[in-house]
Write a protein that binds this DNA or RNA. Structure first.
Length: 646
DNA sequence: GCTGATGAG
DNA sequence: GGCTCATCAGC
């Protein structure tokens, strides 16, 4: 064989480096190998009703709220039924349409929602409840997490799982029926297992070296919908690792969707891409029940066809301003506008954000948020109401609604409580008032009601209170409280009390079949919580990661006397963690990845402007999300703080 | 900390 | 159009 210098074939390497591969491990937002999925339940409220009522997929169904439609299943869409028409028009278009009204609370019946045959006639006494959908949403999210864990267990080596029970993929619940998943860490582990040639030798220090090329066999995309490639790219080109990671990602998402279907009978659509924006646009491309893959080599072609007003954050006034400024809504038109010219009409940070986003550059993180940050209960009045008495009746219902949700979400058991209560009030103009929730009392319906009533009286005293066309109550600024063992004891007692409460004070109507499931779900959840607390005392290794995920000794019990075991130990010079010598390599990798991630974060901060904010379209420069990072508070993400008590 | 506004579904 | 939820600006 001759020297490879002449042959371009044998010189071939990947376009990607070991460093970029490593970026997959710990949430680097900059690596081109990143894989984000967006999963969207198909016509979610409609599916909830179909599942609840046992209605077959082919039966047209719509969910109604008073006289309007808020969800239409896919069987009903060919009839021309959309959210824009009313009930009468829908019946005309499709006489066999099943019309199911959402569950409601009813004045004088406390905090119990129910499905009622006559709720559409009772707009003046009923208030919509979305609880049934929230419950299904929670169940689906949980099933998705389990499916991811199962795939992970089946597809990555045990030694790589490192005795941790927790899922390495990050899930962000984006709304009641949508979720983002950062699949990168999962895919990283699967890659190393399937392609051992990607593993770096210990002596190999050059992280900027190119990866070897992947096998050239054609990729099997199964039932996925692929977005056409950009100009100058062809399907005949050999795949590179960014194609392979998408393929693995699509395999994971398919398995998650299958599990949700098999266990809960819900279909969903999904999009896969290198970031949240692309994944989100992708999931809407092929509905229902399909997944769309946007490979890196297809991104330009994919985005070119969109109106930029369909891109996240550009759907509102900012989008309008941009449309007005440049006389177009098309991404393709805006692509030919140089950055300098964007800057002449937009604030600098908005201009550079826009410049990047229409080219497919979005480095926003998948936020491991799982807990809700505020709860709101509201009612519009048609006609308006005119007395304190009427308003207070609604406040009772709002208080019961919110209290019920506080209990169901387990916020009371977690001793996570809202600190602020707010009342919004609309007459000719709209106003809002808020006060702190006193930390001394236990939260119950009466406390919430009393506070709300105080707020209402303040507004009424201000004058201009009637007629009132809209009223709402919300709680926010949740605080997690557990900080010592005594508090945890209290936690357990409160958990039992809360459990008793859910059985006594929140009994559902007899024909409310899902509620029994809910109760069972709740019991399991409570048991699960207690199990976790116990395991915290007994064996810290089962704990969720803390906010910093430092190897601080909480993760693994340190031997009382290391010498007794006879196994050689090692103390890390960087973090002083003591470990067995055979763990050194993995630990070193951990530091490396951690460093890399923080480098990436800094780089992203420096190179990518924050998403635009309201007043930033013109005039005063606005502080975006990025600007806050180094600013007033270095608070860690709330969602990651759970059980981080020491 | 309080209030209003915007943007998402 | 109604009901949520999140985030930010400006005070």
């Amino acid at each position: 064989m001759s020297e490879p210098t002449e042959s371009s074939d044998s010189l071939k390497v990947s376009r990607f480096t070991y460093r970029q591969l490593q970026g997959l491990r710990h949430g680097s937002t900059a690596t081109p190998l990143r894989v984000i999925a967006h999963i969207d339940l198909d016509a979610f409220y409609a599916q909830c009703e179909m599942v609840r009522l046992g209605i077959p997929r082919e039966t047209p169904l719509a969910v109604r709220q008073w006289d309007s439609l808020i969800a239409i299943n896919y069987a009903a869409r060919p009839f021309g039924i959309s959210r824009l028409i009313n009930v009468a028009e829908a019946r005309k278009l499709c006489p066999d349409l099943v019309l199911q009204h959402v569950a409601t609370f009813r004045e004088g019946e406390g905090g119990r929602w129910a499905y009622r045959d006559d709720s559409f006639k009772n707009i003046s006494t009923d208030k919509v409840s979305l609880d049934p959908y929230r419950a299904q949403s929670r169940k689906i999210l949980q099933t998705m997490k389990e499916a991811l864990a199962t795939w992970s267990a089946d597809n990555t080596e045990v030694e790589n799982q490192n005795s941790k029970q927790e899922l390495s993929a990050v899930l962000e619940k984006a709304s009641i029926d949508e979720v983002f998943i950062d699949l990168s860490p999962l895919i990283y582990r699967a890659l190393l297992q399937r392609y051992p040639e990607l593993r770096m030798g210990t002596q190999d220090e050059n992280r900027d070296a190119e990866l070897p090329t992947p096998p050239t066999t054609a990729l099997q995309w199964d039932t996925d919908c692929l977005v056409d490639l950009d100009q100058h790219e062809t399907e005949e080109d050999d795949p590179d690792w960014d194609d392979i990671v998408m393929l693995i990602g699509s395999e994971i998402v398919r398995s998650v969707r299958n599990t949700v279907w098999e266990k809960l009978s819900y279909t969903c659509s999904a999009g896969l891409g290198r970031n949240k924006m692309i994944a989100k646009l992708g999931s809407a491309c092929n509905k229902p029940n399909l997944q769309t893959v946007v490979r890196n080599r297809a991104v330009q072609n994919f985005l070119r066809g969109y109106k930029f007003t369909q891109i996240r954050m550009l759907g509102g006034k900012l989008g309008e301003q941009i449309t007005a400024a440049f006389g177009t809504e098309k991404v393709s038109d805006l692509l030919s506008v140089p950055l300098e010219q964007l800057r002449t009409k937009l604030a600098d940070n908005t201009a550079s954000w826009l410049y990047g986003i229409i080219r497919g550059d979005d480095r926003s993180e998948v936020n491991p948020r799982t807990q809700i940050k505020s709860m709101l209960s509201a009612k519009s009045f048609r006609p308006s109401i005119n007395s304190l008495d009427q308003a207070e009746k609604w406040l009772r219902i709002f208080a019961a609604d919110i209290y019920g949700r506080l209990v169901e979400d387990g916020v009371l058991e977690n001793r996570r409580r809202p600190k602020v209560i707010t009342m919004h009030y609309r007459t000719a103009q709209s106003r809002s008032r808020q006060i702190p929730i006193p930390g001394s009392n236990a939260i119950d319906e009466n406390l919430l009601y009393d506070l709300a009533s105080t707020l209402l009286r303040q507004v009424v005293a201000d004058g201009q209170a009637w007629p009132c066309s809209n009223l709402s109550l919300s709680v926010s600024s949740f605080e997690d409280g557990v900080s010592n063992n005594k508090a945890i004891e209290g936690f357990l007692i409160r958990g039992d009390q809360a459990k008793a409460l859910t059985h006594s004070s929140r009994l559902r109507d007899a024909d409310n079949s899902p509620n029994e499931q809910d109760q069972a779900e709740k019991r399991r959840k409570l048991d699960g919580e207690r199990g976790r607390i116990k395991s915290f005392f007994g064996n810290p290794s089962h704990l969720e990661y803390t906010a910093t995920d430092e190897p601080d000794g909480s993760e693994e019990p340190v031997e009382k006397d290391p010498e007794l075991s006879g196994i050689p130990r090692f103390v890390c010079p960087r973090c002083s963690k003591s470990m067995f010598e055979y763990e050194k390599e993995e630990h070193d990798d951990w530091h490396f990845a951690k460093d890399l991630a923080s480098q990436d974060r800094e780089k992203a901060k420096a190179s990518q402007p924050p998403p635009p904010t309201k007043s930033s379209a013109r005039g005063t420069p606005a502080r975006g999300r990025g600007g806050r990072a180094g600013g007033s508070r270095g608070k860690p993400e709330k969602g990651q703080m759970r059980l981080a008590f020491q």
